[in-house]
Design a protein around this nucleic acid. Structure first.
Lengths: 161, 161
DNA sequence: TCAAAATGGTAACATATGTTACCAACTGGG
DNA sequence: CCCAGTTGGTAACATATGTTACCATTTTGA
């Protein structure tokens, strides 16, 4: 077992898995953000564009369901995309929701950013073998589930106390 | 090769590696944060504690070097830890820096949080085999390097344009 | 030796994110 | 039908994070 505690009895962050993942995630998202900074999009905005570009017209709640953003984050991203003229909101039959769809310009930007980020990813993934990439994705999924279960267990324990 | 583009020509986030990593990272950090929320620490504060508890006395710049926080983030975290009485700052020979060290209470909290987060990690890692865990850590390191190289290349290309 | 550059840190701002509470529109059981 | 509960979304706040500029020190090198 790898050493995780140091002289002071503390924890060695560099050996700590959630921390390592957080660091990698931040580094990737910074670099990726820099890659498409020229298009003037924030990360939440880009996520909304990505979801909408997949399905032509969606409600905000669908974006919430497909991304790790809460409804407030989505609401803000959509509002600012609308102000930039990249999406439009049309009333739907259920009058609580509006259908979000891409404008021409939105489609254009969305395609360009998709090119950029896919190129970036390809560039990174190129350093892994196919087997490594598959293994990594599998492990990611496993960890997602493991985290959910761990959380559930922790809550159960606290509730029982 | 896995399909990454959908009908609208957009990108399928669920197949996009940096996105998947970002989602996992957020999920882990949320759950982990919840696990030690009772101790009243933020993530940056906990990171500072972790680093300081490893080395008895460090300068803020050391924390910057060992974590993905910039100096402003560290400055704030240290200030608030000091206000809570968990660390103290003592003047050092180089009068630009102060040595940060744990108080008694700081040591206590730090140990408790270390217990909590290590338990959480163990709980998650338990769902992987040793081989899987090692493979994952190796791939993480590989991706970190790959991201750095990709970023360097991208900058070089832009500069040449 | 002493001015220019570098370093450690913080203040003061701007922006982004999370939180709570709320409203308007829908739904489902009596 | 109708009202208690749910759902989609937003406003208005609080907090957190990023940015720029700055000061005091220290280091460097002509």
């Amino acid at each position: 077992m790898t050493k995780k505690t140091g002289p002071g009895g503390g924890i060695d962050l560099s050996q700590f898995l959630p921390y390592r993942i957080a660091v990698l995630a931040r580094s990737l998202s910074e670099k990726l953000g820099a890659a498409y900074a020229g298009e003037g999009l924030t990360v939440p905005e880009w996520r909304v564009l990505a979801v909408v570009s997949q399905e032509s017209a969606v409600a905000a709640r669908d974006v919430v369901a497909r991304t790790p953003m809460d409804k407030m984050a989505v609401s803000r991203a959509v509002a600012s995309l609308e102000k930039k003229g990249l999406v439009a909101r049309r009333p739907a039959s259920d009058r609580r929701v509006s259908a979000i769809e891409l404008s021409q310009e939105g489609r254009r930007i969305s395609r360009r950013v998709a090119d950029i980020v896919l190129r970036f990813e390809a560039d990174i993934v190129a350093e892994l073998t196919i087997a490594e990439r598959d293994a990594f994705l599998t492990l990611l999924a496993k960890l997602e589930n493991a985290a959910d279960r761990a959380e559930t267990r922790r809550k159960a324990i606290r509730a029982a106390e």
